[in-house]
Design a protein around this nucleic acid. Structure first.
Length: 501
DNA sequence: TCTGGGGTCCTAGGACCC
DNA sequence: TCTGGGGTCCTAGGACCC
């Protein structure tokens, strides 16, 4: 047993959990001076979008994550509604993770804005005083480097560190002294425990358990009976404040998937097939970019009534061949009834193996032969019907991308040859409204252009913080661009069609 | 109010093998 | 002639997290 660990909790609060405050919205406010102190909602842009992050100003109106944007607009019509800009969030995230890496080799990112750090393993803390010092300094560094605030939780276990950071929000630090966890947890609602969501919470409530103390009192057997083996056992341990899960630095992804919700339900079967082909290709692109291959292809279909089903097929060996994935997904689609309309389609690959540059042609040919054989074996009469993407032996025709329609999206960075850097505030009826300001400028003015004004081009995010000493700033957004770099990235950005189903 | 997109883990039944 | 138990793989669905 590692020293200092009793009962599934360390004797010193040396596990740190960092959670950036309203991350996406805060990054947008940092990038757009006119939005500071104002309600900002980042989320899906279409009519079926949901809120990814609401700024604290917007939360006062009742807006929160996962809420349909349509509902958020009713609650808070005056907020700025912006599309997410993951390139920006990723570059800020890299800066933050770099700071965490200075504290310890054991950093476990949970998402772009959240991570666990094992301070003891990094040798920067071995008791409450040193842990608090490290946490406070981290918060100062994060603000200096990114211009954003993060909240820090410190405790003897992951679970408690996470609960602590939640309590610290926004812009705070909470340290839970080992030994105090049970009295602290006892009165809290069961929903604060990781793994207790709406369904489990309701289940427990019907059984008369609303607080963590209720769970500890119920006992392990009762929880297992109620929730099943794995869930029951782990929940009981959590309720006692026991959690000895280690901080794990890097974990390989176990699946890769892409999905699209359509603005309007799809009814045309040919269109559905084409979308499955496009999703297959996107999925394979991501798979290849990760240097992986996978053995099981999964098709996901959400129907008009929100009922969701998945179909999967396991191949003989791992693949990263777009044709193989297209054809498998196509076959799976043939087994799904889509009458009534399709709201969402998804294609994923699981059973990932490290990529090996094997004989992909042989692989593809083998799978095709197999498929053809199956088609012949089962229903000879069906063969004629299975045209298009899901068909048997014929090669799959490439599906053309939709025309490169130029849509100006709210929040998007742009540059005007006369007025300089700005962002799209809105567009419609052939016009686009741009506010000209930058992260380090005062709030700027608005101007309106025709949507096809040649002087207006998309551009990349600018650094949120003026590069000072620039020891940390090695990521794209934190580094000033040379004019040539800027021009090159502008071109790249405008060449990329905005994907909208 | 009308529900995103990317993941993880667990359960349960059936096939198949020993 | 009727009846085993265990282990692994595959498939489908569901809960949960950010």
């Amino acid at each position: 047993m590692p020293y200092g660990s009793i009962d599934g909790v360390r004797s010193a609060p040396t596990i740190l959990h960092l959670d950036m405050d309203a991350f996406y919205a805060a990054a947008e406010q940092a990038a757009k001076p006119s939005l500071r102190g104002k309600p900002v909602v980042v989320g899906g842009i279409g009519t079926r979008g949901v809120v990814a992050t609401a700024s604290y100003e917007a939360r006062r109106f009742g807006v929160h994550s996962a809420m349909p944007v349509a509902q958020a607009r009713r609650l808070c019509p005056n907020a700025a509604y912006l599309m997410p800009r993951f390139a920006l969030y990723r570059s800020v995230s890299e800066q933050v993770m770099e700071l965490l890496g200075r504290l310890s080799p054991l950093v476990e990112p949970l998402s772009l804005d959240e991570a666990f750090v094992d301070l003891e393993a990094g040798g920067v803390a071995d008791d409450s005083v040193s842990a608090r010092r490290a946490g406070e300094r981290l918060r100062v560094d994060i603000r200096a480097v990114t211009g954003l605030t993060g909240s820090v939780g410190l405790a003897g276990s992951k679970m408690l560190a996470k609960i602590a950071s939640e309590q610290a929000k926004p812009d705070g630090l909470v340290l839970i002294e080992p030994g105090t966890e049970r009295e602290l947890l006892g009165p809290m609602p069961v929903r604060i425990l990781p793994g207790v969501g709406p369904a489990t919470g309701e289940h427990l409530r019907r059984a008369g358990m609303t607080t963590v103390a209720d769970l500890a009192e119920a006992g392990e057997d009762e929880l297992v009976r109620l929730l099943g083996k794995a869930h029951g056992v782990s929940l009981y341990q959590m309720a006692l404040g026991h959690d000895d899960r280690p901080v794990v630095a890097e974990r390989d992804a176990k699946s890769v998937s892409v999905e699209d919700t359509f603005e309007v339900d799809l009814h045309d079967r040919v269109r559905v097939r084409n979308e499955v082909v496009r999703l297959s290709d996107r999925c394979v692109q991501r798979l290849r970019a990760a240097g992986r291959s996978g053995r099981t292809v999964v098709l996901k279909v959400r129907r008009y009534d929100f009922s969701t089903l998945t179909r999967s097929e396991t191949l003989r060996g791992p693949t990263d061949d777009p044709t193989v994935v297209r054809e498998a997904a196509g076959r799976l689609l043939e087994s799904v009834d889509t009458t009534g309309g399709v709201r969402l389609l998804g294609v994923g690959v699981t059973g990932l193996a490290d990529f090996t540059q094997e004989d992909l042609f042989a692989q593809a040919a083998g799978e095709r032969a197999e498929a053809a054989e199956e088609a012949e074996d089962s229903e000879a009469g069906e063969a004629g019907k299975a045209g298009g993407a899901g068909g048997g032996g014929e090669p799959v025709a490439p599906v053309p991308e939709p025309p490169p329609e130029r849509r100006w999206l709210a929040g998007q960075d742009v540059r005007h040859s006369v007025y300089g850097a700005g962002w799209v505030q809105g567009s419609g009826v052939g016009r686009v409204t741009v506010r000209f300001e930058e992260p380090t400028s005062p709030p700027g003015r608005v101007r309106t252009f025709k949507v096809d004004d040649p002087d207006l081009v998309p551009s990349d995010p600018l650094p949120l913080v003026r590069a000072a000493g620039d020891q940390v700033g090695s990521s794209p957004a934190s580094r000033p661009k040379s004019p040539s770099e800027a021009a090159a990235s502008e071109e790249a950005a405008s060449g990329e069609a905005i994907s909208s189903p």
